[in-house]
Nucleic acid binder design. Structure first.
Lengths: 332, 332
DNA sequence: TTGAAAGCGCTACCAG
DNA sequence: CTGGTAGCGCTTTCAA
């Protein structure tokens, strides 16, 4: 099923069919109707590869995420996709599962697809890969990695502030022993959160004790990390978790150990995904506006003449603490 | 950056470059090395569209899901993708959000991409769309919709048995007033689950009362449905939910109404996703093997000479009840 | 307003 | 083992 068959059936040239397909308004209505009829009768679907190749431009946007299973990433995807769709673009997602090999593969695949733009929402990224993207002239937007440059936009969250506010709040409630639960502690945003945690603890509570532990980015990972902290003999008054998913795992671990939240121990999440409201108890968290991130990402990749152009810039988002029932005054 | 430039730089023909790209073992090692060097120096990435177009075959598999945010779908995706990757295929996912317009768009897009195969994991599907897929000669595998035919495989779960076992179990515990919480009750699998629910209730407990309610497939949806049931004046001894996500929403609603689970009311989920173990209380659920579904889907699309060929068949999966803490003997 | 034809970048067949 | 070259299905000038 090709353009040519449609053209033959409609008694026109392939050029005309192409014009109809692309809605070029220079086709006589009668001709257009005939072509449309042929298309419908033949159940014709244009070959996107041929189209992209001949046209020299793609209308698909790529997105690469570390862990689409974590609703944080999914929410960004959803928002980006909504923007894309309303502007006539498609988005293709790849999920790397925090695996750098898969990241490399995904990036190359996106370059091979000659995507119109690429949103990279991963924890860590080899600068060499960014170079490849730059060499391929792919417009990119990075979340939390890289530096702004030509064709490369940056969106980041001021974790430091988010964590500072959390620690300050807990400190005010009388907490004095903190545990920090992250994942793959070597990863950039995690470690930024971790270092922000350490800095905050020192600043607001120089005399307090703390401990950190990390595992996979999942419920299970949060649970294991918490169990390890507890097994080490340290008994924190508060667990600060790198995200809400891990916090839910921590809640389970505490419950299994017979500790009540927030009566005995306080727990905080991060990101403020929907689950934070539905966990038991609901989680005090730090809101990161995924919708806005998705919108900004699209705007950075496909600038709109109407809106201010943010391509090539660095955008910093200020997070906000959301109080719920998982935190309370520390037991004395 | 094209094949030709690489060829020029390596001092060979484009045909030879193509051969080394495709690992055809008939290239002299020395030549191959030169080509590889040129590729690396130029940072060349082959244009996938040109490749697919010229080769006449794609190595990407498509998957369309109703709601990738629900871990059930994501787990199937993950499993399918693992299979695909290990066989040299890529997978492109689309998420329709239960919107039939988006389903149509996604299907056409996949046809336009000339995917090697398409896995459709949605709740409902217009037979006309299946016809389009058939006309496009796209190998397909459907989960819970359609009928097996040429190039079309079917995977389904025996919901009836799953629900029957759940109802029987609850009935044995003395439950007598059931509520069924679903989403978009008009959708096929939901309604299959709903009708299975009704049939089971009548069979195991002909004298009991029941009520059904439905909403969006999300935490919020489950919560709203439960609140509606309660507001109607009906007070069930057990809530049977169409999946674990909605069950978590139900748990929240019950807690807000001051009802304890399982002391006052029992709640069951379905699918047995990871969250079922991490909710509070952990959910009694019905296990659906997403891994197996993903593996079967791949096998149906890309038959392996070694394995038995399941393409064109109908495969029925038997679910199994998993008991956890959200169910208990009914209050008298 | 329409058609003819030259590519887009790659694969695959046929020679050599 | 390597090169030449005819397409793959579409878009896009350039003419008509």
């Amino acid at each position: 099923m090709s353009l040519e068959e449609v053209a033959k059936r409609a008694g026109v040239s392939t050029a005309t069919v192409s014009r109809v397909l692309n809605n070029l308004e220079i086709v006589r209505p009668a001709t257009k109707a005939r072509v449309l009829k042929a298309i419908a009768e033949l159940n014709y679907q244009p070959n996107l590869h041929a189209r992209t190749l001949a046209g020299g431009r793609s209308n698909t946007i790529g997105m690469i995420a570390s862990n689409l299973e974590n609703p944080f990433f999914f929410d960004v995807f959803r928002s980006l996709e909504a923007q894309a769709r309303s502007h006539g673009y498609e988005v293709v997602v790849a999920h790397t599962d925090y695996d750098s090999e898969r990241l490399v593969r995904s990036v190359r695949l996106m370059i091979g697809r000659r995507v119109a733009g690429l949103a990279v929402v991963v924890s860590e990224m080899d600068p060499a890969l960014i170079k490849e993207l730059h060499a391929a002239r792919t417009p990119c937007v990075f979340y939390d990695v890289g530096k702004p440059q030509e064709r490369m936009t940056n969106i980041r969250v001021n974790y430091r502030h988010g964590i500072e506010r959390l620690v300050e709040y807990l400190h005010d409630l009388g907490h004095s022993r903190f545990a920090f639960v992250g994942h793959h502690s070597t990863l950039a945003p995690t470690s930024e959160r971790e270092s922000a945690f350490l800095a905050s603890v020192k600043r607001f509570a120089p005399a307090v004790e703390w401990r950190t532990d990390a595992d996979r980015d999942s419920f299970e990972g949060g649970k294991l990390a918490a169990l390890r902290v507890l097994a080490s003999g340290f008994s924190p008054t508060a667990f600060i978790c790198v995200n809400d998913i891990m916090a839910v795992g921590v809640l389970r671990a505490l419950r299994e150990k017979g500790l009540r939240v927030p009566e005995d121990v306080s727990v905080t999440g991060f990101d403020n995904v929907r689950l934070a409201e539905f966990s038991e108890p609901p989680l005090t968290s730090v809101h990161i506006p995924r919708d806005e991130i998705g919108r900004l990402a699209f705007a950075a990749l496909i600038p709109d003449k109407e809106l201010p152009n943010i391509a090539g810039q660095e955008i910093v988002i200020e997070p906000e603490v959301v109080l719920r029932a998982s935190t309370a005054r520390a037991k004395r």
